[in-house]
Amino acid sequence: MLAGFVALTLLVALVGGMAAAPSVRPWYAVLPHPPASPPDWLFAPVWTVLYIVMAVAAWRVWLRGDLLIDNRRALVLWGWQLGANAVWAPVFFGLHRPGIALIAMIAMNILVALTIAAFRRIDRMAAWLLVPYLAWGIFATYLNAGFWWLNR
């Protein structure tokens, strides 16, 4: 099951990477960037680690099958946040719509926070594993808002 969770999260990463790749040089690179924008090379390794940690967190909750209803609700929330995550890159990079992508990013952060709360009731370590993801998501939201503001 761990391999399945990892595969699912890395599939989302692959979709995001495929959506971003064609736009990074001709579009994204020439946009004015908000202050504190990290170098482009940093995003892929950070997101890869976060996707794997997300998978481990979900797996830990899945292992705690003794709380079946809470477990299922928590994993459904996890799936929803992953879906919101999957929407972001195609909207931002594929459609070149930072404003709409910002809505997806905010929704993702809300869903991640709800997932952390749900995971905490089942497995505290699983909840803590998602905290860096939420922190990076909040930073990414700042960047997304900055791109939208500077390039509207």
Rank of each mutant, 00 (worst) to 15 (best):
I122D: 03
A7F: 12
G17N: 11
I116W: 04
A101C: 07
A84S: 14
A55L: 13
F5E: 02
L50P: 09
D40Q: 04
A101P: 08
L82Y: 11
N144C: 15
F119M: 01
L42F: 14
L63G: 09
F119N: 09
N144I: 04
L150I: 10
A101I: 12
W78F: 10
A13Q: 02
V87C: 13
R120V: 03
I100R: 05
V46E: 06
I69T: 13
L111Q: 07
L14P: 09
L95A: 13
A19R: 00
V30L: 10
N144T: 07
W136A: 05
P90S: 05
P90F: 13
R97M: 15
F139E: 13
M108N: 12
A107Q: 07
P26V: 02
A13Y: 14
R64G: 11
V76L: 03
G137I: 08
L129E: 01
I106T: 09
R73E: 04
G17L: 09
L10C: 06
F43L: 03
I100L: 15
G4R: 14
A126C: 04
I116L: 03
N144G: 03
G137N: 14
T141F: 06
A36Y: 00
W88P: 02
I52M: 10
A107G: 07
G137T: 07
L111R: 11
A58K: 01
G94A: 07
G79K: 01
Y133D: 05
A74F: 12
R72D: 07
R97W: 15
W27K: 13
W148D: 04
L2C: 06
T115R: 01
A89E: 09
W128V: 00
A20S: 14
G16F: 08
R64H: 14
I116S: 01
V15K: 00
R64Q: 14
R152W: 04
L31R: 03
R73T: 02
P22A: 06
G94S: 02
V15H: 08
T48L: 08
N85P: 02
M105K: 04
V53H: 12
T9H: 15
V30R: 10
V6R: 09
A13E: 11
G94Y: 05
L143A: 08
I116G: 02
A107F: 14
A117D: 01
N71R: 08
A101L: 05
F92A: 11
I69A: 13
V49I: 12
A74C: 06
N144H: 01
A74Y: 03
W47P: 10
W47H: 09
R73V: 00
D123T: 12
L102T: 13
P34N: 09
A126L: 07
A117E: 01
N71E: 05
R124L: 13
L63C: 14
N151F: 15
L75G: 11
I106S: 07
A104L: 01
I103N: 01
G17P: 15
L75H: 03
A29M: 12
V131G: 08
R64I: 03
